[in-house]
Design a protein around this nucleic acid. Sequence first.
DNA 1: GAACGACATTCGGTATTGTCGAACAAGGGA
DNA 2: TCCCTTGTTCGACAATACCGAATGTCGTTC
Lengths: 248, 248
Amino acid sequence: MIESVKKACQIISCFSNKEPVLGIGTIAEKLGLHVSTAHHLVRTLCDEGVLMKDQKKKYRLGWRVLEWNNHVMFQQDVYEKAMPLVKELILRFKGTVHIAMFDKGTVVFVLRVSSEESTPIQTYIGSRKPAYATSSGKVLLAYNSVYLQETINRGLSHEGPNTITDINQLKKELSEIRKKGYSISNSENSDDMYGVAAPIFSYSGEIIAAVNLVGPPSYMQGSNRDMIIRSLKSTAQTISKELGYIEI
Amino acid sequence: MIESVKKACQIISCFSNKEPVLGIGTIAEKLGLHVSTAHHLVRTLCDEGVLMKDQKKKYRLGWRVLEWNNHVMFQQDVYEKAMPLVKELILRFKGTVHIAMFDKGTVVFVLRVSSEESTPIQTYIGSRKPAYATSSGKVLLAYNSVYLQETINRGLSHEGPNTITDINQLKKELSEIRKKGYSISNSENSDDMYGVAAPIFSYSGEIIAAVNLVGPPSYMQGSNRDMIIRSLKSTAQTISKELGYIEI
DNA sequence: GAACGACATTCGGTATTGTCGAACAAGGGA
DNA sequence: TCCCTTGTTCGACAATACCGAATGTCGTTC
């Protein structure tokens, strides 16, 4: 492990929506580095365009990050295949649609589309939630035992009113999900949000992502509940097929 | 300058749309590093989530980049203020709208919105073009002499049919742009594209970005040319005001 | 307007740490 | 099954990142 690279990554991660602009001192303090060391790293990152100087004293994230990001987007096959289908879902059911992938015990949202009329929810592209407390996370856990083990090792904590914190209960639910082919999360990570998710499989038959639709419980549990689930499963299947998955 | 950090940045930049997946050997060769060294760096970047292993042997960009990107987006005040106004422009005039900023002799497109019917053009968020060969670049040069000097130092080369390659001619045009308050680029960087750009100023009166609208010359030079220019200037002014700029 | 303070920036010696070369392991093709 | 390619690990050396202090720069206060 190369220390300076790790530190550099940590420095980049210091910048956030809340603190878009930081001084050397603040950075050094946040990471427990000597100002001098922090300065060296920041200077290098500036030189590479990852950070940039803001009005002579403060630093902010730079253009290089935008460049990199574009390459992530295009790279994920899922992204390209899924976009048109996701837009269709939004047109039909409003709400917010995510595509999520598993990473280190959490789900990462790699795609997020909201209809104008949707109730706003606290997610954005690149943000994470505990896997066991989201509909998409539970689908991912249901179809991949390595993911499940990793999640269990990290422990289950209360995230919302209905979070599952018992391992056996979780395992039971996951086997249910495998039977039904979709998962549901009702206020498990945030109050008053209802999510439905279905699995996306790669050509090799492994689960690689999940599509989910989130909205207010009143709407999601209403008369069109079954239709939502059918559409979501069908969307997930279509994406899987486009990725080369052959249904058995 | 910290060498390993620079190398790490270069490794991340190796990944592109064309080559989203790379092996250690390829990376090492591209950068002239020893495989062992490359491996150490890659391993560290994986650990940080910047890269990820793909099916046991190859590497691709990871989630961390998505996270970082989101912070760049939100951080740029310009982005948030400008979006609704840019969408209005698109509705009225079709074509493609960019917001561009200056960096190291080039313009970087930090925002890009296209109407469905627009002629496709080769730009994307995070991509660059020489400043002197684009409408947005010329506006940025016109209002900031430091940018101009930096651009001149790097030299002017032929980018398209009408690229300005003479320094004096460029300076003359820039002074014209300052008088008129907008700039025009007619097939200066790519054949058959016509762009109009207007300056965005910060609260301190410095130019910080440019809005531009690009489309086919036939449409842009037609009867609505003047209206396009007026709208674009007005959009730029509104954004500037929202950023705290006080018009004199 | 001058002096202070807070902060970024620079500099040099020391020890950590990244680098290189080679050996080992794994995977795929013949 | 063997060989060849490619990724991964190991150990020793030398480079280089780190620390501490000194210097520079800006903004604020009296």
